[in-house]
Design a binder for these strands. Structure first.
Length: 205
DNA sequence: CACGGGATCGTCT
DNA sequence: GACGATCCCGTGT
């Protein structure tokens, strides 16, 4: 079952980040379907979150997508190399997004290995937002596209997998240590002991 | 395995 | 002109 508008257009990106753990993220284009279970997310929320690109509701060509209605894909180029994938939530005009940082691969694994240029399944295939996006074929080209469109190339499915709170860990977000007052907010959610969580950051706890 | 530097380019100042 | 919501690889232990 595909996640619909009622899932995305809510006003609590922390709750949505938590609920996304266990959902299946799918891309399909050129006749190839790739998918995996979301195991790591981070919430970003304007206007108060200083780590958010749309802090203080800053509206630029890049952040335009963040203000779209919930259910859009916000994909931007990071470090000139990585196309990071975010899910836009809430109503139009509110910049609330969830960065998807890692999945556990389930479908199209051979394709993911080719895209990642790796010989066999290993956490490095999809652990971390840049690696995950490359494995799924995410591209800035898809920025602003809808996750609700039946003809779209990216969407989420509910396969009725839910993790109990005892299996969920919460921490500071990764890579935002220079982003001001909100750098220490615990807005990262991940599945404990899952090997596909961006492993080199376990030390962050 | 830990550490550190380089890659690479769109975005904003 | 500076700087990233990152990753890879080479080096040293």
């Amino acid at each position: 079952m595909r996640l619909d508008q009622s899932f995305y257009q809510r006003h609590d990106p922390l709750q949505i980040s938590r609920e996304l753990l266990g959902k299946t993220l799918v891309t399909q284009f050129d006749g190839i379907r790739t998918a995996g279970i979301i195991v790591e997310t981070e919430a970003y929320r304007a206007p108060d979150d200083s780590a958010c690109h749309a802090h203080l509701n800053r509206f630029t060509e890049r952040t335009r997508t963040m203000f779209a209605a919930g259910g859009a894909a916000y994909i931007y180029l990071c470090y000139g190399i990585h196309h990071l994938f975010n899910i836009v939530t809430a109503d139009e005009g509110m910049a609330h997004v969830v960065l998807v940082r890692a999945i556990e691969p389930t479908e199209g694994i051979e394709t993911m290995l080719l895209r990642r240029n790796l010989p066999k399944l290993h956490p490095r295939v999809t652990a971390g937002p840049g690696a995950m996006s490359q494995a799924l074929g995410m591209h800035k080209q898809f920025n602003g596209t809808s996750l609700l469109d039946p003809d779209g190339m990216i969407w989420l499915e509910d396969h009725h997998l839910t993790y109990p709170d005892s299996e969920i860990a919460i921490s500071r977000r990764i890579g935002v240590e220079n982003s001001g007052i909100s750098k220490d907010w615990d807005w990262r959610f991940y599945v404990r002991n899952n090997p596909y969580v961006s492993a080199r950051y376990y030390k962050w706890k």
